[in-house]
């Protein structure tokens, strides 16, 4: 498979038709959702507290919709107008910004309780123009320093990304460290070609004790079963949480969304049933 980031700049690659294709592909939706849940798990937010999160490279809102469902307030930034337009159509609840993360952020210190970024970082490894401000090290440096200051102390930022070499991983982790972050790389299912996923797990502050780099997931590798396995973990996670934060959206909210999608002529909206919006039971 050729890498999208080698084909064209992101705002061109994710034009109108690719943005739609990307968002409507159910397999892609599932993969992005699974990785978002895993990133949230690695983010390790204090349970039962509201949180204000940053979704870096939020795209059309596939990751943001999960933040909505989980009851987080969030801000999303992305460089591709067509992706943001789809996010608007899908009525995600986060505030959206058209922004090139390689230019850095202007958010005030301590603005966010955490950040996630799903399938984005590899885009920063390609020079956009010949201007000196646009070399990957420059862009990564601005990105990580301004992100570090925008995050609360202590907090985390978790990135799932697709590195194409160890050198890339090295450049990214060393730039993040220079910007003040602790943390490192977490690899899930390292021995599976298909299921392997790389996460960069960064810490602000609290260099001591609990900020240990989490362990990657092992074991179940075969793809079908991997997805089921992860979903089960998600449900367990959901059931285990309670308190102030409203987690799963209620039935009314889901019906409203479905109605909205139907009005827009979206296909594949599941029928409403007596099960709609019910808490799911664990499968196992």
């Amino acid at each position: 498979m050729s890498r999208p980031e080698l084909i064209a700049p992101p705002e061109i690659y994710y034009g109108d038709s690719e943005a739609k294709k990307y968002t409507q592909n159910t397999r892609n939706q599932q993969i992005q959702a699974d990785m978002t849940y895993r990133a949230l798990e690695l983010l390790n937010l204090p349970p039962e507290e509201p949180a204000f999160l940053l979704d870096i490279g939020c795209g059309s809102g596939l990751s943001g919709e999960i933040l909505d469902q989980e009851g987080y307030a969030w801000v999303g930034v992305d460089i591709a107008p067509s992706m943001l337009e789809v996010a608007l159509e899908r009525e995600v609840e986060g505030d959206l910004f058209l922004q090139d993360i390689g230019q850095g952020f202007g958010f005030r210190p301590g603005s966010f309780d955490g950040a996630i970024s799903i399938s984005v970082l590899q885009w920063l490894l390609n020079a956009e123009t010949s201007h000196h401000t646009s070399s990957p090290p420059h862009r990564l440096h601005r990105f990580f320093t301004t992100l570090h200051s925008a995050l609360r102390n202590p907090s985390r930022a978790v990135f799932q990304f697709y590195p194409s070499s160890d050198d890339q991983i090295q450049l990214i982790t060393s730039t993040a460290q220079k910007a003040g972050f602790g943390g490192g790389i977490v690899v899930d299912y390292p021995n599976s070609k298909k299921a392997k996923k790389v996460f960069l797990c960064l810490f602000v502050g609290g260099g001591g004790g609990q900020q240990e780099i989490p362990k990657g997931l092992e074991g179940v590798e075969e793809e079908g079963s991997k997805v089921r396995f992860e979903r089960r973990r998600d449900r367990e996670r959901l059931r285990g949480k309670g308190g102030i934060r409203k987690k799963v959206k209620d039935k009314d909210w889901i019906l409203k969304k479905k109605e909205l999608y139907r009005r827009r002529g979206k296909e594949d909206v599941p029928r409403d049933s007596k099960y709609t919006g019910r808490k799911r039971k664990p499968v196992f």
């Binding site: 930034v77 608007l88 959206l96 058209l98 922004q99 090139d100 850095g104 646009s134």
Partner: peptide, 15 residues
């Protein structure tokens, strides 16, 4: 525009 602020900087404005 459409509720989305454009935060993009021109090259000479990039830190």
């Amino acid at each position: 525009s459409d509720g989305i602020p454009n935060m993009l900087l021109a090259e000479h404005e990039i830190a």
